[in-house]
Nucleic acid binder design. Structure first.
Lengths: 187, 187
DNA sequence: GTCTATAGGAGGATAGAC
DNA sequence: GTCTATCCTCCTATAGAC
C-alpha cells in the first residue's frame, strides 16, 4: 500500500492536520509524497478530491480505537473514563475537528459529511454507554444521555482549542477532569 | 472613528472571523475597507500587524458582555446559566477560538497572546462564580472550580465545532444543556 | 502512470510620485 | 496619507510528451 496514490493520501492527511485545507497546497502534498504533478492529477481530479480521500481515510482510522475503548472491558463509567483520558495529540488538535473551521470545507459536502459522521457516531455510542452507566447507578439518572454525550465530545474538541491557545496541555486536562468529576454520580 | 485606519481594522476583524488568518489576504481587507495598498501599509507594517490590531479589538469587544453577565444580578447558578445560554452566532464560530487552528497564529505570540488572555480571564471569572455557587449549595461541592471552569469554556468552544460539522445549532445547544444539567447540584 | 512545460491569477510587500 | 506601478513567489490546473 505504498504506491503513489496511497502516499499522496498519506501526505494529504498529514498536511490537512498540520495546516488545514485552504493552507495546504497540491504542491506541498506532492513533494511530501515524492510524487509529481502528473501523478497527482492522474489519480485525483484535483485538490478537493484528494482531500476527500484523505479525510475519509482519517475517519476510518479513528473509528476502531474509539469503538474498542467504549465497548471494551470495565464498567460503563470506567469505559467513559478510558475514552476521555486516552492520550491524544492535544497541541496538534483534532485531525477532523480542526478542518471544520475551514470555510472551504464546510461549504463542500463531500468534505464535511465524513467529518460529521464521525462526530455523530461518537455521540451515539457515548450516549449508549451513558445509559448503561445510569442503569448501573454510576451516572446521575436525571441527565439526558444524548445531551451529555454531546457535552463530552464538545469538551474534547474545546479542550484542544484551549490547549492550543494556551500553548500547553494543562487546560485540556483540566477540562476533561472537570467534566469527569461532574458526570460521576455523587456519593 | 471611521477613518481609514479604523475601517481597516474592522474589515480585518470580519474577515478573520469568516476566513481565518491565513486565508485572509491584505487585498481582501483593503477592498472591503475601501482603502488602497498605500493606506494599509502606511498604518500597519503588514498583514500580521493589522491582524494583531484586529484581534486585540475583538478581544476588547468581547470582554464587557461576559463580565456583565457573570457579575450581574441573580444567584451564582443563574448567572452561569445566563452566560452559557446567551445567544451566540453558533454557526459562524468563535471569533477568537477559530483562529487558534491557524498555524500562523499559534506561531506568532503577538497574535496568540490576546486570544489566550481572553480564555484565561473567562476561566478565572467562571471559577469565581462557581465557588460562590458551591457556597450557596447550587453546585456540587466535590468538584474543582478551576477544572469545571475550563470545562465550561471548552463546552462552548467544542459546541461551535459540533455545530459547524453538523450544519446546525442543535448539537451546540445539546452540549450546553448537557453540561448545565451536570453542574446543577442534585436535588 | 509519470514527467515537464506552461498558464493566468493571487499573495504579500516595496518604491516613489502626489 | 493615499495612489499607482512593479516585483517575485506560490497557487491550482491543463497539455502533451514519454
Amino acid at each position: 500500500m505504498d504506491d503513489a496514490r496511497s502516499r499522496l493520501i498519506t501526505s494529504a492527511q498529514e498536511l490537512l492536520w498540520e495546516r488545514g485545507y485552504t493552507a495546504t497546497s497540491p504542491r506541498a502534498i506532492q513533494s511530501r509524497a515524492g510524487a509529481g504533478q502528473g501523478s497527482m492529477y492522474h489519480h485525483f481530479t484535483g485538490k478537493a478530491d484528494l482531500a476527500g480521500a484523505a479525510i475519509r481515510r482519517t475517519a476510518e482510522e479513528m473509528t476502531p480505537g474509539a469503538r474498542s475503548r467504549l465497548e471494551g472491558p470495565g464498567s460503563p463509567l470506567e469505559r467513559l473514563r478510558a475514552y476521555l483520558r486516552v492520550e491524544r495529540d492535544v497541541l496538534r488538535g483534532c485531525r477532523l475537528g480542526r478542518l471544520v473551521q475551514d470555510q472551504d470545507v464546510v461549504t463542500d459536502p463531500h468534505l464535511l459529511e465524513p467529518i460529521d459522521a464521525v462526530f455523530s457516531g461518537t455521540i451515539a455510542r457515548l450516549a449508549e454507554v451513558l445509559r448503561e452507566a445510569q442503569e448501573a447507578g454510576e451516572v446521575r439518572a436525571d441527565a439526558d444521555p444524548d445531551q451529555v454525550a454531546a457535552t463530552l465530545v464538545a469538551v474534547i474538541q474545546g479542550g484542544y482549542v484551549l490547549a492550543r491557545a494556551h500553548g500547553s496541555t494543562e487546560r485540556y486536562t483540566a477540562a476533561i477532569e472537570g467534566v469527569l468529576s461532574l458526570v460521576t454520580a455523587s456519593p
